[in-house]
Amino acid sequence: MAKKTKKGFLEELKKEFSTYGLALIPIAIGINWAGGFLVQTLKLPIWGDTIGTIIAAVLAGPWVGFAAGGLTNLVKNFTFDPIGAAYGIVNAVIGLIAGYMYKTGRFTEKSNWVEVLGTGLILAFAATVISAPITVYFFGGVTGAGADLITAMILGTEESTGLLTAVFGSELVTDLLDKVLSVFIVFAVMKKLPSRMLRNK
């Protein structure tokens, strides 16, 4: 029985990484970077770099989302920008979760706004739960971004219980705004896409 599920999983993977799935990945990465670029231009306190990942996950499946997310950072680190090398895993997991939520019908083009908001919250918590320990244990809590000021502020309060909670707090603020906004954008895009593109279930 276990063998059977394993084979099923491999077949599922093969189906996801069809030519269509693979053609989608560079586009998804492009959307991620364009999103990040816009965020920089508009000086917004969010990342904006997971919208393509979530779209890839929705249109082709969780593992395509995973690959799109991971490669977003990896390709960037080897060609454009050396910063953020360790966080590819966060982007990848976002794709994985979003893909499974789509597949199980929790986040689809037919969802209501509560479900969309819920998806955003889940993604935000997941992102923070993965990224905060990375930031603390490998980077000593330092990201070089404005979020570090929030970390320091939390550390400076009487109630502070250490660096991990401080970083968790500061990253959660950014991620909540970022992921909720991102899923709403993806939701709006899904509504506009022809339904033949949303047949992956």
């Binding site: 030519t19 269509y20 693979l22 053609a23 989608l24 586009i27 492009g30 959307i31 364009a34 999103g35 816009l38 965020v39 508009l42 000086k43 917004l44 904006g48 919208i51 393509g52 779209i55 249109l59 906004l181 954008i185 709006a188 895009v189 506009k192 896409l193 593109m197």
Partner: peptide
């Protein structure tokens, strides 16, 4: 205001590029 500008800027890019995936799939095949 800047957050409000974000969505109309990103929307067309996302939609336009996703619609082209099908043609590129054919090209690859």
């Amino acid at each position: 205001k800047r957050l409000g500008a974000y969505v109309p800027l990103l929307g067309p890019i996302v939609l336009g590029s996703v619609m082209k995936v099908y043609e590129r799939t054919i090209a690859l095949e």
